[in-house]
């Protein structure tokens, strides 16, 4: 998250990367574990630098290298100026390589056979699944009690104040089950239990300060989601989602000023609008908001505000226009558990 607002938000960096590099982003948790051609290629690059991965340790950082796998630079720094210098040095090194290492078409990359990929450490959405962007933001209330975005003072870090991003995958069977053969306004439609639990346990999380802990099954104290038909025509089905969710690591909900260390929770209401194009059929809109009070923090999300504080989550159908739209859900590292929570 920090690199998003420092190095990769810098206009010079953006211009340089778009013009002179092929930029790629990857999750080290998968890449360093993959036992296939991709994993071996990556490790071959990484071990030329300081991230040797002893004992399976992290290899995270920012690497510059050639298509043949020759490392040009490695750095893991948040200062855009430092990183710009590193990128320029990498370009200088690249320019000095023999032509068979850098000319267009000079390096021959062998085709990759999908069947040889390490399925344990690669994620692709199931056939026909849809992806939904999931944003989250810590909020505050103004003097009238209205929710607003939190802002940093001059010179203060914006860590934890920016909108975060993850993705929800909904399988074809799940979204198709939302389309009844016959429907009229006022009808209730059942939400698949696995989808309701996936949303609650893996997507109503505070990931604004880092990799979040997911909710355990027993943390779901209440998860009441309902779908109502608002409008039904031969072409369109408009649904409204209402929900009330209580997630808490303790059976009893603590009061705001009595939250013990390691206690976490989120007490929220949901409202959303889901439109179905019945002709295709396809989900045309998936706009949902969760809003309520969150409390506590996880191992990698330290720095939460004390007590219960307003926290919002927004869901939006991914239209495929962002490169990030294909990124798997964070919780899908446990693939089976994600699809059937």
């Amino acid at each position: 998250m920090a690199d998003r607002e420092s190095t990769f938000a810098n206009p010079e960096v953006i211009k340089l990367l778009n013009e002179r590099f092929v930029a790629v982003a990857a999750d080290d948790w998968y890449e360093r574990r993959r036992d296939d051609a991709v994993g071996k290629f990556f490790v071959g690059v990484a071990i030329q630098g300081p991230r040797r991965g002893e004992g399976g340790s992290t290899r995270q950082g920012i690497y510059c290298f050639t298509a043949s796998g020759k490392l040009l630079a490695f750095r893991n720094h948040r200062d855009p100026g430092v990183m710009l210098d590193e990128f320029r040095r990498a370009l200088d090194k690249f320019a000095k390589l023999p032509s068979d290492e850098r000319e267009p078409g000079a390096v021959k990359v062998p085709p990759l056979d999908d069947a040889t990929l390490d399925r344990q450490f690669t994620r692709k959405p199931p056939e026909g699944a849809i992806a939904v962007r999931v944003f989250a933001r810590v909020l505050e209330r103004d003097e009238h009690g209205n929710c607003t975005a939190c802002t940093a003072g001059e010179g203060e870090s914006r860590r934890g104040l920016l909108s975060s991003l993850d993705h929800l995958w909904i399988t074809a069977d799940e979204w198709r089950s939302l389309i009844p053969r016959e429907a009229k306004a006022g009808d209730k439609i059942a939400i698949p239990a696995a989808l309701a639990e996936r949303i609650a346990r893996f997507h109503l999380v505070d990931n604004t300060r880092g990799e979040p802990p997911m909710w355990r099954r027993e943390d779901v104290r209440k998860n009441a989601l309902s779908l109502t038909v608002v409008e039904a025509t031969p072409n369109t089905l408009k649904l409204r989602l209402d929900g009330e969710v209580l997630l808490s690591t303790t059976p009893d909900v603590p009061k705001s000023d009595k939250i013990a260390k390691n206690e976490r929770g989120y007490d929220a209401r949901l409202l959303g609008y889901i439109d179905i194009d019945r002709r295709k059929p396809a989900v045309a809109r998936f706009d949902v908001v969760a809003l309520g009070d969150h409390w506590g923090e996880g191992t990698y999300t330290r720095g939460a505000r004390p007590g219960k504080t307003p926290f919002g989550i927004a869901f939006q159908l991914a239209d495929g226009k962002h490169a990030a739209d294909v990124v798997p859900p964070q919780a899908s590292r446990d693939w089976g558990g994600y699809l059937r929570p």
Partner: peptide, 15 residues
Amino acid sequence: PILLWEMDGHPLGCT
């Protein structure tokens, strides 16, 4: 050349 942004947790998601 390739620039790889490699993080524990996908840099384009997760947080």
